[in-house]
Design a protein around this nucleic acid. Sequence first.
RNA 1: GGACGUUUAGCUCAGCUGGUAGAGCAUUCGCUUGACGUGCGAAGGGUCAGCGGUUCGAGUCCGUUAACGUCCACCA
Length: 870
Amino acid sequence: MDRELAKSYDPREVEDRIYSFWETNGYFHANVNPDKKPYTIVMPPPNITGQLHMGHALDNTLQDILIRWRRMQGYEALWVPGTDHASIATEAKIVEAMKKEGLTKDDLGRDRFLERAWKWKEQFGGRIVSQLRKMGSSCDWDRERFTMDEGCSKAVREVFVKLYEEGKIYRGERIINWCPHCLTSISDAEVEFEEKDAFFYHLRYPLADGSGYLELATTRPETMLGDTAVAVHPEDERYKDLVGKKVILPLVNKEIPIIADEYVEMDFGTGVVKITPAHDPNDFEVGLRHQLEVITITTDDGYMNDLAGKYEGLSILEARKAIMADLEEQGYVVKVEPMKHNVGNCYRCHTTIEPRVSLQWFVKMEELAKPAIEAVKTGKTKFVPERFDKIYYHWLENIRDWCISRQLWWGHRIPAWYCEDCGETIVSREDPTVCPKCGCTHLTQDNDTLDTWFSSALWPFSTLGWPENTEDLKYFYPTETMVTGYDIIFFWVVRMMFSGLAYTGDVPFHTVFIHGLVRDSKGRKMSKSLGNGIDPLEIIEEYGADALRFMLATGNSPGNDMRFLQEKVESSRNFANKIWNAARFILMNLDGDIELSLPETLTLEDKWIVSKVNTLAKSVTENLEKFELGMAVQKLYDFIWDDFCDWYIELCKTRLQNDDAPNARRVLVFVMTNMLELLHPFMPFITEEIWQTIPHEGETLMRSDWPLFDEQLDFPNEEKEMERLMEAIRAIRNRRAEMNVPPSKKTDLFIETAFEETFKKGKPFIERLAFATNILFDESENQGNMVSIVTPDATIKIPLEELVDTKAELARLTKERENVQKQLEGVLARLNNESFVSKAPQNVVDGAKEQASRLQEKIDLLNQSIAAMS
RNA sequence: GGACGUUUAGCUCAGCUGGUAGAGCAUUCGCUUGACGUGCGAAGGGUCAGCGGUUCGAGUCCGUUAACGUCCACCA
């Protein structure tokens, strides 16, 4: 085996090699295994159009940490990867590409367009998947899925037919959100509102009986051509008498009724609303209640249609101007005032949405929502952090029927056929050829496709084989954890929940682990238009995937946004390098074969570090169980850098030169192995690389056992003893630094302590780390001007006569005594407080007492030193 | 209009079930210390946004105010 490591860690040399080692050996693969408990995560499928961005990087890092950890813990850990066809986004890209060739969808026709689309998918769909591999994602690639593959399509079809048969899917003329640019309907969730400057147009409609006018206000005067009523509040005294009468619609010169409806706010505007059922969702509702005619006056691409009379062919905005000009000329305009107005935009292209009545397919939501609400209320599925259940409830409790048909070609085509002869609608699992009602063969399939989220909603179980009751489904479903951003709770999480409950009878996952957004260094959302996005692949290239992953996990608390700072990646990279060099140090000091276990006898410092790493395993595990990945990472960092590298390795250096070296080597390897195991989920590449290089058992670190807390390795007393020594060493170094004594100047040390035993054991450390030549415990040799250092456990004197300014030294000691005195008074104040002693828990009181006695000891020692000097 | 989040060292952020504040970076000082200068040793720096309450004790719990941010609603 090659036991040489480069002087600094080069991720580029390691990562791809390690990844293919894992992949070709099948370490990512999971099987149905009755002897193990399953742990399943289904990956939120990235769009095939997508390129890896920081959001994916975060999302996948968190999932991979969980999966790798559980796999090591002995679960049959399955992470199912896959991609989403992203109907609207993908279709837009393909249309755009075609445009460059001068082609439109209609030029090609549906079949040839889909051919192109699939080719495009073959060409680019794999890109994101290979980028996920760069992150180190330990997905089971044998199970990679695509929302439009055969199995997922079958699931989609099954759900559609089932819901249709149960009457939960229906087709009807409803008002929907129409994007005049994408030329398709979109769901309520896909509309984004934006505040814009607009105008409030006050108009007057003449009463039909000639007795005057009714004044009303609107933000969209052009829709008046489709008005079929004006409405007032039933209790509005101003207009009560007019209800039932008629007004004449200006320009159109048609009589329309004055109706009463509680939807009207008396206090807003004039308290009179024009009702255009075809072009406003609220008006549509009013129209239904009053059986009003629905008159659509625009085309699907945003122009006025033939019902708009002389305005036909104008764009909506042009029509608005023309109509206002005509109204003005004919004296129907009262005033025009500026106002702020919220406009709905298409989430994809940001075109203003036109509410429009059209024939679409819908899912009835009310009944489906109930079990989904219940499942979270009863804790069958939990949000982490919990507060996100509010968004979830709010969305489900106010849910409206879901418009699922899209006027697109790329996606799952709606499995409904219409008989041209008798008009029958056929929805079935198999493509029909004959009309079951009239027996003819003139059937045409619905042209529309389904909302992308319709198939995404089935993802946690369609990927496991549903609707077949496969072994995978039985074993891995329900999945355990869903990791996703808060921005798609209502798009996706909600829909997976009700779908899972409705079709599989169980929740799709037990925990929804929500993370925030990765923002830029200024806290702005990363976006294409701002050009402030940071490419994870470039970061990986420069710093390595481990550094990126570690950075993303560090300080990431569930549900909160984080900022991407280059310096944070750098410090993660430095950390990787630190471990690398620690490993290098161990390798340099190995000598032939080594036993992979702890030696029988452990020294003080061995027990200290072993006890520490043992406790670390416990607390890291606890953090992971609570999804506190950021805290787990912090503890690993502190232990590895401070305890292991800065202390333990330093403490070993002397030992490695003497007879005890074999034991020291075994402890070093033991602790390093534990560290690598604990760190592996976070930094998989470097840990595997090091593990393979140092003496080890087994084939791969990623399949090693997760360290467990071991009672036998818990040494609290030795931890305390080491602390005493470390405190003394720090104090000496501190004092020397203050006095500008260079490390090269070594001195004797005189130590007086009640813990002579401990300090004798620590003699070599103190010599090495506190720059001592001799350490003397015999007070009689203590003479002359000395620098005094006082810790609660010891008084240490350094003979630095030439540097000692007795007066200054005295002043320093006196000041320190004052400080300690103050601290002591604080603690005593608490201890003298009757209610503290009686009400605080015993361990807190004991802690305070111990602290008081330590402080008192320190004061005593300081007093002695002061007395000796004066 | 409603809901939620954030406010802690110069900067970016941790701080779990209340026990008397931490990290990284930055700053200052000192180091050719036999793994690492992507490093080592040390130092300075915080009335934890304000106010009130609960408690022996509050950064942590409750109420309230403010600033910033996000989501939902959409009165035409």
